[in-house]
Design a binder for these strands. Sequence first.
DNA 1: TGCAAATAACTGACTGGGCAGTTATTTATT
DNA 2: AATAAATAACTGCCCAGTCAGTTATTTGCA
Lengths: 185, 185
Amino acid sequence: MAEFSEKGFEAARMEDIARRAGISKAGVYLYFRSKEGLLTALIKAKVAPLAQQVRAMAAAGATDPLGALRRIASMAAHQLQDAKVLAVPRLVIAVSGRFPRIAEDYRREVAEVARGALIELIEAAIEQGRIRAVDPVAAARAFIGPLFFEGMWTHVLRGESAEGGPGRLIDSHFDILLNGLEHRA
Amino acid sequence: MAEFSEKGFEAARMEDIARRAGISKAGVYLYFRSKEGLLTALIKAKVAPLAQQVRAMAAAGATDPLGALRRIASMAAHQLQDAKVLAVPRLVIAVSGRFPRIAEDYRREVAEVARGALIELIEAAIEQGRIRAVDPVAAARAFIGPLFFEGMWTHVLRGESAEGGPGRLIDSHFDILLNGLEHRA
DNA sequence: TGCAAATAACTGACTGGGCAGTTATTTATT
DNA sequence: AATAAATAACTGCCCAGTCAGTTATTTGCA
């Protein structure tokens, strides 16, 4: 993981990966078919659990969907302070053209799981009358998009991270997400 | 551009790039110092104008900031249907670790320009009393994030694109952005 | 205008290094 | 002794970048 995220897929050397794992390069090939196979396994092992965690948080918060959304956002905002969290999505973005299977796996096992959980939470919130009847897919996009963007802005472009840290970030995010930009009547 | 976006930076071969441009590989080195130099020049030539266009649209819309934001979003949503538009951001994300200078250039000449224009529009809207006094940086994030996410979702992960095409996407986006998720009083 | 000299644009062929994946061999375990 | 685990050394391929040499274009001059 460290090697891949520091150097990217192509520039990461199997020799370095092996050394860092405390074995020889040939040793790696006892456990993984190829470099691509290693990355695939890595994604499944390291990232799929995160998506499962989002799903669990969503399931646990079915009776209080807005609270659950806020907890999920808060967790995400804190995690985003660590560049390592974005390493896998970055890798996926980088290699998706040449290894479509990796993008497919990631979508199915990570992105779709987390996104699905969010959509369900939003649907529950609508059903319970907590929020108005917006398009749940659009609402999920409005929820994730700014967080994703903030991560890319900070860690990829090295722009200044949001003032006031994750707490403030989430407060602003939810203020706009729930109340919108327009004046209240 | 085509070679880089189809194969990524490392896997793109200078020989293929040259052939596609109708010259020999050595010929490319008459105009560009290195592979990295070629990519840098490409980004400046191809993408910086887009950011300038956003700035121009923002400047032209100073008297009607919300209208200008909507026109910019609409343009972005239509452009996003074409995978080529995201090719450069994807490349930047992919190589930013190994070539920090590329990420820096992109931030300074593209991202910061477009983002700055949006922030100014939002500040103008607040000043004119069209929207309430939210944090302009957070509002810009809420504006861009979902569009960026939609592009990545569709073109990188090959997820289903937003139902109803760009028109519908913008309508949902602005509905949530302006009115929020909560019920109106 | 015609022609040669000078310069610019371009290329084929090569090099040097790097690295994924394999194989023959050694070391540890039962 | 037999099997499993691990490795050092090796192979074959790829490709960025270079360079000596060729072709095209421009300039200078009679």
